[in-house]
């Protein structure tokens, strides 16, 4: 029986889909059987990030409403035989699935897969409650911005009242240089405020955009910093202890000058 992990955030655009695609790919690469479930009904994205948009025949609503069997809707990944995607419906609205149906669906998927990763839509409406209904674990994604952290706090509260205790935190799009110059909240600030366990930190990385353009998750790119950060999180999910990535930036000439003048 596998784990069902929902990737959620509250605020939109902070990296839920990117995270789901990369963690799923990294876990499949490590040999696990993984299925990614896109619950962002009406705003389907995960298929594009995975590069599987041309293979979709059925979607999640076809499954829950009995139009097709679960196996028919699962799309096999291009790269890994043990990785599958259950795409969201694009033309329906988020009320076309119920939390009850999601629970049944996740129970079925857990039979066949080691990890069921659920990509949650932004917001705290029906779509959120659908996405978390069948999950037994949660990952909260935020960026180092006031509004994103505030929404993350709200989500953590909602997860707790839904009995999804001890969610873990991913801080995405950290810019080490801005942190160093005191222009961005750092990891400790955010962990301190949200008071949940950190499972990883992802740096801002242009390769994420390149990889999304190609439909190939950044974990496949050995030179991508964000890819490396996601590979580490995948190992932590498996239960390994892995140190946080070193995101220190070398001193610039400006910094050296400041040191000289004794300003820091």
């Amino acid at each position: 029986m596998g784990d069902t992990i929902v990737v959620t955030s509250g605020k939109g655009g902070v990296g839920k889909t990117t995270t789901t695609a990369n963690l799923g790919t990294a876990l499949a690469f490590a040999g696990f059987r993984v299925v990614l479930v896109d619950t962002d009904i009406g705003l389907r994205n995960l298929d594009v990030v995975m590069g599987l948009e041309n293979r979709i025949v059925y979607d999640i609503v076809d499954v829950t409403s009995g139009n097709c069997r679960l196996k028919q809707a699962l799309i096999k990944d291009k790269r890994f035989d043990s990785l599958y995607l259950l795409p969201a419906a694009q033309t329906k609205d988020k009320t076309s699935v119920s939390p009850e149906e999601m629970r049944y669906l996740c129970e079925d998927l857990k039979e066949d897969f080691d990890y069921v990763l659920i990509d949650c839509p932004a917001g705290i409406e029906q779509g959120f409650y659908n996405a978390i209904a069948g999950a037994n674990k949660a990952i909260v994604v935020t960026t180092p911005e006031v509004s994103a952290v505030r929404d993350a706090d709200r989500i953590i509260g909602l997860l707790e009242s839904a009995e999804l205790r001890n969610p873990t935190l991913i801080i995405n799009r950290i810019r080490p240089r801005m942190v160093k110059h005191g222009d961005m909240m750092d990891i400790d600030d955010i962990v301190d405020i949200l008071a949940i366990d950190l499972i990883g930190v992802i740096p801002e990385d242009e390769k994420i955009i390149v990889s999304t353009n190609k439909g190939e998750p950044a974990v496949m790119d050995s030179l991508s910093q964000a890819g490396e950060a996601y590979r580490r999180i995948a190992r932590r999910i498996k239960g390994e202890e892995v140190p946080l990535m070193n995101l220190d930036v070398p001193n610039s000439i400006m910094d050296k000058l400041k040191n000289l003048v004794g300003m820091y």
Binding site: H181, G182, D183, M185, M254, K258, M263
Partner: peptide, 12 residues
Amino acid sequence: LGRDNSNSRKHA
């Protein structure tokens, strides 16, 4: 040298 850059992290 950018000292005037009042520390926006603390504000945040």
